[in-house]
C-alpha cells in the first residue's frame, strides 16, 4: 500500500513538472504576438494578412504546451504504470 501511495504522489509531481513547459510556450507565443503587433504598427495596411499569419504562428507554438498538457492528463487519468504496480502488489 505504501509503495502505491508513493507512486501516486510521484505521478502528481511528474504531471506538475510536465506542465512547466507552459513557461517556455507562453514566452514563445508572447514573442510571436509582440512581433506581429510591431509589424502591424509599421504597416497598418497589411494588418489582415499579418493577423492570419500570427494565428498560425501562435497555433504552432502552442503545440508543445498541448503535448505537455496531454502527458499530464495521461499520467493522471490513464497511467499504465499504476495498473502494473497494482497487479504486482496484489500478486
Amino acid at each position: 500500500m505504501k509503495e502505491l501511495a508513493i507512486a501516486i504522489g510521484m505521478v502528481h509531481i511528474a504531471a506538475a513538472i510536465a506542465l512547466l513547459n507552459g513557461l517556455l510556450t507562453t514566452f514563445g507565443q508572447a514573442k510571436v504576438a509582440a512581433q506581429a503587433i510591431e509589424s502591424i504598427a509599421r504597416q497598418p495596411e497589411a494588418a489582415d494578412s499579418i493577423r492570419s499569419i500570427m494565428f498560425i504562428g501562435l497555433a504552432l507554438g502552442e503545440t508543445s504546451g498541448i503535448y505537455g498538457l496531454l502527458i499530464a492528463i495521461i499520467m493522471l487519468f490513464a497511467n499504465p504504470l499504476i495498473n502494473t504496480l497494482i497487479s504486482l502488489i496484489s500478486n
Partner: peptide, 16 residues
C-alpha cells in the same frame, strides 16, 4: 498527429 492532438487538447482542457 500534431493536427489532431492540438484540436483534442484544446477542446479537452475546456471540458476539464
Amino acid at each position: 498527429i500534431s493536427l489532431s492532438f492540438r484540436l483534442f487538447g484544446n477542446m479537452l482542457y475546456g471540458t476539464i
